[in-house]
Lab assay of single mutants.
Amino acid sequence: TGEEYIAVGDFTAQQVGDLTFKKGEILLAIEKKPDGWWIAKDAKGNEGLVPRTYLEPYS
């Protein structure tokens, strides 16, 4: 299990392996990579890379 984050903006996948999401979606951070791209999972179970700058902790 990971930590929940809320998307603060829309993001469209730029390449294969990225995860597209919309502002307000809750994402589960699976792995926090030091380069600023995290592996996350959305509510539908889709998994991919997301930019850290689009996420804020969800409580």
Rank of each mutant, 00 (worst) to 15 (best):
K32E: 07
E31A: 11
Q15W: 09
T1V: 14
A29T: 08
G17F: 06
L28V: 14
W37I: 08
V16Y: 11
I26N: 02
G9M: 15
P51E: 08
V16Q: 13
T53R: 13
L28T: 13
P57W: 07
Y54R: 07
K33P: 06
A43M: 13
W38P: 01
K33D: 06
G2D: 10
A7D: 00
T1C: 12
W37C: 09
T12W: 11
L55Q: 00
A13C: 07
G2R: 13
A29M: 13
K22C: 10
L28I: 15
T53H: 14
S59V: 14
E31F: 13
K41G: 03
P57G: 05
V50M: 01
I26Q: 03
F21V: 09
L19A: 01
L49H: 10
L55S: 00
G48D: 02
R52W: 14
D42H: 02
N46P: 02
V16R: 11
L28Y: 13
G45S: 03
E4Q: 15
L55Y: 02
E3T: 10
L28G: 03
L55G: 00
G24S: 04
G24R: 01
F21H: 00
Q14Y: 09
K44S: 11
E47R: 10
G9V: 13
L55C: 05
G2E: 11
V16L: 12
P51V: 04
E56H: 10
I30S: 03
D42M: 00
P57V: 09
K22A: 08
A7L: 02
G17D: 05
G17N: 07
G48K: 00
I6F: 06
A7P: 00
G9A: 15
W38H: 01
V8M: 12
L19K: 00
I39P: 02
G17T: 07
I26W: 07
D42G: 03
T1F: 13
G48S: 02
T12M: 11
K22Q: 08
I6P: 00
I30A: 02
P57A: 09
T1N: 13
Y54I: 07
G9D: 14
K23W: 05
F11N: 02
W38G: 01
K41Y: 06
Y5F: 10
K32T: 06
F21S: 00
G36Q: 05
E56Y: 09
R52S: 15
K44L: 12
Q15T: 11
E4M: 15
A7I: 02
P34S: 14
G9W: 15
V8E: 02
N46H: 09
L19N: 00
K22R: 12
G24I: 02
L19I: 04
P34E: 13
T53D: 15
P34N: 13
D18I: 14
F21Q: 00
I26T: 05
L19C: 03
R52H: 15
